[in-house]
Design a protein around this nucleic acid. Sequence first.
DNA 1: CTTCCATTTGTCATTTAATGACATAAAAAA
DNA 2: TTTTTTATGTCATTAAATGACAAATGGAAG
Lengths: 283, 283
Amino acid sequence: MNTLEKITKNIESFSKSERKVAEVILASPQTAIHSSIAALAKLADVSEPTVNRFCRRLDTKGFPDFKLHLAQSLANGTPYVNRHVEEDDTPESYTAKIFESSMACLDAARHSLDPLAVNRCVDIMTQAKKLSFFGLGASSAVAHDAMNKFFRFNVPVLCFDDVVMMRMSCIGSSEGDVVVLISHTGRTKALVEIAQLARQNDAIVIGLTAKDSPLARECSLVLSMDVPEDTDVYLPMASRLAQMVLIDVLATGFILRRGGKFRENLKKVKEGIKNSRFDNPHL
Amino acid sequence: MNTLEKITKNIESFSKSERKVAEVILASPQTAIHSSIAALAKLADVSEPTVNRFCRRLDTKGFPDFKLHLAQSLANGTPYVNRHVEEDDTPESYTAKIFESSMACLDAARHSLDPLAVNRCVDIMTQAKKLSFFGLGASSAVAHDAMNKFFRFNVPVLCFDDVVMMRMSCIGSSEGDVVVLISHTGRTKALVEIAQLARQNDAIVIGLTAKDSPLARECSLVLSMDVPEDTDVYLPMASRLAQMVLIDVLATGFILRRGGKFRENLKKVKEGIKNSRFDNPHL
DNA sequence: CTTCCATTTGTCATTTAATGACATAAAAAA
DNA sequence: TTTTTTATGTCATTAAATGACAAATGGAAG
């Protein structure tokens, strides 16, 4: 836990002198981390060992160690925590909260991701004859995005957000085809059926979905992430973000695996769209 | 600047012994902040004053002060900096880099966003008779996502990634209609024309695009973000993420403005899709 | 209201860490 | 090769932090 919060939370349980120390620190943490134990003791009008005892009470090894902890909690102004939007938030505050929550979720997602699974996934995708990205609802945007990325690699790519099209596509698939199914919950019936269908037609099915979900059970390979979805707002927010970054990761792995000549291809695509644009005077 | 970055950046200008110190610290910053100057000197196989001189070279007052700075840059596990993927990165390292870069970009985007503009944008959107989201290329995924979000609010919403459909839609628009155009660069000719067309037909045009771009000049209101796009990879990555979070922000502002009864509506939508899903045994 | 016990707090001594001054070694320039 | 400059280490000094112990404070029981 954040050291400053910890002080605030425990201030009631402190003794008189320790509370004096706590108040001085809370009043100006920046001063605290740049002072010696003697200076701080003087500011709080207590003895030096009292400051030391205060530090130990907060589970630190001593004053220098305490300063380190304090410095860490002071870094970055605000840490990226999942903060909830309140009814009376100003535009400024809810904007900050949403951005911060998004970052916190990406951080959580990253740590829950299995690099080995990522690697195997890239393996499979680089060897695919055809790549299909399927997603329904909020995940369809992710599927679109994935297509937009992978089509630049000169690989046959498909993308559908329509169950009927998915079915037709799966029936026509054959060995060497890879189907990527995107679903945060992994509980969408239609998509589970698609997974079964794809596998019956010899396609490899990769699931970007929750582990141990019905969908996950039907996939050849699952890439799961634990994203703390903000459930009191009835909108899927962070999950798509994490999925999208995961697509970036897979695309990057793809490029790295296929090597330099494919980077040439990317350049070509980018140059190809140039004359549909206004020139940028700054370039 | 981040202390770790600073060390990396200046490592060339260090002397032999100082470089030894730098390497030991970079190898394990966590060890460094918990060691005394003597311990660190031993690890780097140099004398204690050398470590001290190293600290001063990095604009700190001495070793303890240096540790404080280092601790701050180590806060949050790893600092979110824009790190570039290298040819020989492992799956683990490029995954971490991409997630971190994404978070760093979101952070940058957040700080460059004007809350007043967000507020005005929400104002306009809540009063819209009809909402249209248009995006081409990578931005089309964002437009889709926006539709997916706003349609839950019981507002007429459109979304196109096809220029012809956009044109047709714009021609049919009238006063009170709001068109949101999504383009990272703001230099896509087709979209600039759409902006003009929409305004000729009395629609309000909101641009989620770069400020001072050709598209921005044609919009009634511009929401711009400075996102450090990773230009040596020929893929748009972070910009869509930032745009998507911005959509979340707008949607949230929308809900807050419209009040409680709309939250009921969200609940209904969520319950409506329930029986297309497998039950979650954990709920 | 006193006495006793427990807790808190301060004083002082000791230990440990950090820094400054100087000397030596290494490298670069003459 | 010699000189000069820069880098590095040794040692002494200073400052900071901690431990041990004593004094003071605050309750609780008699």
